[in-house]
Structure formats: structure tokens, C-alpha cells
Deep mutational scan, measured.
Amino acid sequence: GLMCLEHEDEKVNMYCVTDDQLICALCKLVGRHRDHQVAALSE
């Protein structure tokens, strides 16, 4: 899978609806997407 741009060791596994961007779990937990609307990726 694709790796996160901000956290190079994390794979992107969710999608930020607010930013129209693929993000990883760390982005959602501690990153700038924590208050955004996110959706899980169905692979």
C-alpha cells in the first residue's frame, strides 16, 4: 500500500473527507486531521 507522506513508516489506511486526502492512523490520532471527518478505506 501507499505510505503516509507525514509518517513514512505508516501505511495510509483512511481517507480524510475534509481535506480529500489519504491519511494514516497517526494523522488521525495525533496529526492535523484529528478533528476532521475521516472514512475508513475498504480494500
Rank of each mutant, 00 (worst) to 15 (best):
E10H: 12
C24V: 00
H7N: 01
D20E: 06
L26C: 13
L22G: 15
L5I: 03
N13C: 07
Q21H: 14
K11V: 04
R34H: 14
L22N: 15
A40Y: 02
Q37P: 10
L29Y: 08
L26F: 15
G31I: 00
H36S: 02
L29V: 10
L29D: 14
G1T: 05
I23R: 05
V38M: 06
G31H: 11
I23F: 03
S42V: 06
D20H: 08
M14Q: 14
C16I: 07
L26P: 15
V38S: 10
H33V: 00
V30M: 09
L22M: 10
R32N: 15
G31E: 06
S42G: 12
Q37N: 06
R34D: 06
K11R: 10
K11D: 05
Q21Y: 06
H33K: 03
M14N: 09
V38G: 07
L26Y: 09
V38N: 05
D19A: 00
R34P: 05
C27R: 00
K11W: 04
A39S: 12
V38T: 05
T18I: 15
N13P: 02
T18Y: 02
L41Y: 02
L5C: 11
M14C: 13
H7R: 01
A25T: 06
C24L: 00
C4G: 01
K11E: 11
E6L: 07
A39I: 08
A40L: 06
C24N: 01
D19V: 00
Y15P: 07
G1A: 03
E8K: 14
L26H: 15
G1D: 15
N13A: 07
A40W: 03
R32E: 13
Y15E: 10
V12I: 12
D20T: 05
A39R: 13
M14P: 03
H33G: 02
C27G: 01
A40K: 13
L2M: 15
E10M: 09
M14E: 14
L26R: 14
D9P: 08
E43W: 06
L5D: 11
Q21E: 09
C27T: 02
K28V: 03
V38K: 05
K11F: 07
Q37D: 13
E43H: 06
L29K: 14
C4A: 01
A39M: 08
C27A: 01
E43K: 12
Y15N: 06
V17H: 15
D20P: 01
G1E: 13
D19F: 05
H36I: 02
C16T: 03
